[in-house]
Design a protein around this nucleic acid. Sequence first.
DNA 1: GGTTACAATGTAACCGGTTACATTCTAGCA
DNA 2: TGCTAGAATGTAACCGGTTACATTGTAACC
Lengths: 353, 353
Amino acid sequence: MPRQKARVTIHEVARRAGVSVATVSRVFNNSDLVTKQTGEKIRSVARRLNYIPNASARSLSMKRTETIGMLLPDMHGEFFSEIIRGADAIAHKEQYHLLVSASHSNKEELETAIKMMSGRVDGFILMSPHLDSETLVGRYLKSVPTVILTSSEARGMHDSIRIDNVGAARQVMRHLISLGHRRIAIVKGDPGNEDAEERLAGYHAELRANSIDVTDELIVCGDFTERSGHAAGRILLDLKYRPTAVFASNDEMAIGVLRCFREEGIKVPQEIAVAGFDDIQISSLIHPSLTSVHVDISDLGSLAAERLIEVLADGTKRKTVKSIVLPSRLVVRNSTLTTTHADAVISHATSVQ
Amino acid sequence: MPRQKARVTIHEVARRAGVSVATVSRVFNNSDLVTKQTGEKIRSVARRLNYIPNASARSLSMKRTETIGMLLPDMHGEFFSEIIRGADAIAHKEQYHLLVSASHSNKEELETAIKMMSGRVDGFILMSPHLDSETLVGRYLKSVPTVILTSSEARGMHDSIRIDNVGAARQVMRHLISLGHRRIAIVKGDPGNEDAEERLAGYHAELRANSIDVTDELIVCGDFTERSGHAAGRILLDLKYRPTAVFASNDEMAIGVLRCFREEGIKVPQEIAVAGFDDIQISSLIHPSLTSVHVDISDLGSLAAERLIEVLADGTKRKTVKSIVLPSRLVVRNSTLTTTHADAVISHATSVQ
DNA sequence: GGTTACAATGTAACCGGTTACATTCTAGCA
DNA sequence: TGCTAGAATGTAACCGGTTACATTGTAACC
């Protein structure tokens, strides 16, 4: 019975090549203190033995793992995969790895995930509403480079990459109002989610700025899934006075709303206009194409990775917390404006503080 | 200037608690050889110091990383995120981590990625057409538990999770032929990609079975992106004798074809029917909804993770290579059949060998 | 009381690398 | 030829855990 073949170590290579482990190590770290000849010899032996250095041992003695821990609240849909893609691209370029973990819906799970990653990663990219600074993990994070994505209670303590939710939401509303809409519904996201809160705040702010009263029945709750958008659409259609426009806090929900309206034979945008947020790929392909706020989601990931690696490289634990606000722009399509053929794009002011 | 706070180690905890490191280690590994009282004491000290065990050290001495390496050819689109989601769910459940790496388009990059993960993971989930068994990495992989996704030259040497591409493609073709189509085009994927090859083989086989001649001009090449599908659509429309149906080897390309046809005012399915493969989420939402082969993509990831963890748990290096074939089913929608209102589903035989 | 058995804890080797420092070798020069 | 600087290589400590084995403590039994 063949048993686990012991992995070949640096000692084995050194022995076979007739040198010390230090020299082998030097060769594999491209040190220039090794004779060309010795180097060749060692490389050839290593190749013959299929030697590949052990990363755990390396991490341990170097106190660097060259790995970034990435914690996401979920993994469904394009939004998250784009974030991962963006981060992976940068990580790859900078010779870092990505340790990904999703599916931690609650605080305890998040903390377990962070604990399990401790010592396995050099820093974190963290996207989660649940993040309390006074838990063990919260305190732990203070001593580890961390970049927060979008928003969270913990913003302010760490670097962060965010979207100007309020500004962009106001822009959507301004667009709808400019089309003559006054009875505008919003499908908001789960309470506790700051992106959701901020988009709702933008909704309120723009209505107020235009002296339009807020009507409670026009505010319905979703949870960022297509299904919840569909349900929200149902609720809105059942109202005595239907809205003439719906602003869904993300595209998935907007697509749910559209599906509901299509099932019920409601014409979009003639009877009710619909707008979303995120501009995921599908949004430009569906019929009617969806007006949305375009955010380059993969940038969210790549900027986070870039910033994190920057902090990691610069060992001097600087205390300056940097918050990068992602550019976004309103993309007007057929779900709000039937006449436009080519997509109209309205840029939105962007900034980096 | 505050310098890097040295992470607190097991020795520190032991010292402060007045015990040896062995005892502390035992507490954190839930050994039952420690007095309840001592255990309490140690836990309290550890909590006070924010002690979290170092995973690299742990991996090194235990020779287990509790991490799965996942190598994907790309990261664009829903397909890959679903795979990751499926794998993450299982990994999480079984207390494993997921080290993800994409963006290795060529063989060299793939090898670098694998090398970099060596010692960092207990096993691999690998999806890549480029995989030669005679390179250093190829030989290396033989000694590390590995599960291959979908297909690859290396299939046969390792466990694998695959889709019955040939069977499912034949089913699509059978469906189109049963609708009376005889002039059926295929948009195939890149040569070298086995999924692409197999779907093409299914196309050929079913035509042959129905005594329909193969026409070269009806076979156009794409690369699994929406853009390439659009281009393929263009080419097909420019033919002197247009096809009456198009089978795109994946949904992204099918969506590209649809977009092209819409731009050109071609009615689908009246003038040309279109079918895809994968049944990604968008496919049921677009207009017209897309006939496709439904595969539960996240299962691809979760089955791979399950199988890998199973192999890892069972140390006895068994030589039985297991190949799991994923169930799939044809979902008929409006892009081929205008009359169906409710989705028709035709199940496809499934098997596990 | 003196063994004995077993439970609780400690000691130190080991996992596989990196690297400061020590040692050896070589060439250049007086 | 002898001396010296610097290049090439070796030695061994260290990274932070785990764990086999040694040691100590305690209760039970004769």
